[in-house]
């Protein structure tokens, strides 16, 4: 009962905020509604028992992607009113595409037959005495640890590659030298000059 109520509330928020993303006049508000949509989707994942996905959604999408969006929207001078000018005139075509997409999704969903082995796999998504975060960790860091480490090496190569291909050491660039700054002595830079009164420093 409670979970049903939570489901309806969360999905209503998700749908409304998704709609607001499209129709909001202010782009910053649109991004904020997007974040709200992500949060309610994360809530739906929790209801499904997928805490890990919910966490990832909040950390990756809200924490990184949406904040990046927000930065871009605030930093760039884009005239959103101009971008939305043709909204009404393009609406019929857009609506047609939307209906076609909905039709494709519906036919796929209705015609979907799960494979023989899928049913048995679905019946035991996680071991009884574990949360699904622990179950996923047990797979990634135990059974599939070799793949995990290999993927790490691939990322290391990507990092080295990016540095090799783009980093250029320029001469004559002033860089902060912490060591020199900290070890600076008073005598090196301050000089006490005895100036006689009335003569100036010239």
């Amino acid at each position: 009962m409670l979970s049903a109520a939570a489901f309806y509330i969360l999905s209503a928020i998700a749908v409304i905020s998704a709609l607001m993303v499209v129709i909001a006049k202010n782009p910053v508000r649109a991004v904020l509604f997007l974040i709200l949509a992500f949060f309610s989707a994360a809530g739906l994942f929790v209801l499904l028992g997928a805490e890990f996905l919910a966490m990832i959604l909040v950390i990756v999408y809200v924490g990184a992607v949406a904040v990046l969006f927000l930065f871009v929207v605030m930093m760039l001078d884009i005239d959103f009113a101009q971008l939305k000018e043709g909204f009404i005139s393009h609406a019929p075509l857009g609506g047609l595409v939307a209906i076609a997409l909905a039709g494709i999704l519906a036919t796929t969903g209705l015609g979907w037959v799960s494979a023989d082995s899928a049913t048995s796999a679905l019946q035991s998504p996680t071991p009884e005495d574990m949360t699904n975060v622990a179950a996923l960790g047990a797979l990634i860091y135990d059974r599939y640890v070799l793949f995990f480490q290999l993927a790490g090496l691939v990322l290391l190569v990507a990092m080295i590659g990016a540095i090799v291909l783009t980093l250029r050491h320029r001469d004559g660039v002033k860089r902060q030298d912490m060591h020199a700054q900290v070890n600076r002595k008073r005598e090196d830079s301050v000089e006490i000059v005895d100036i006689k009164s009335g003569e100036g420093i010239g």
């Binding site: 599939y144 070799l146 793949f147 290999l150 993927a151 090496l153 691939v154 190569v157 990507a158 080295i160 590659g161 090799v164 291909l165």
Partner: peptide
């Protein structure tokens, strides 16, 4: 199949960088 793919990617990614080494 996963070892195959990861090994292949590790190799290829390093080779792409080497090919463009003279940037």
């Amino acid at each position: 199949l996963i070892t195959l793919y990861l090994g292949l990617e590790l190799q290829s990614l390093a080779l792409y960088v080497l090919a463009a080494f003279n940037r």
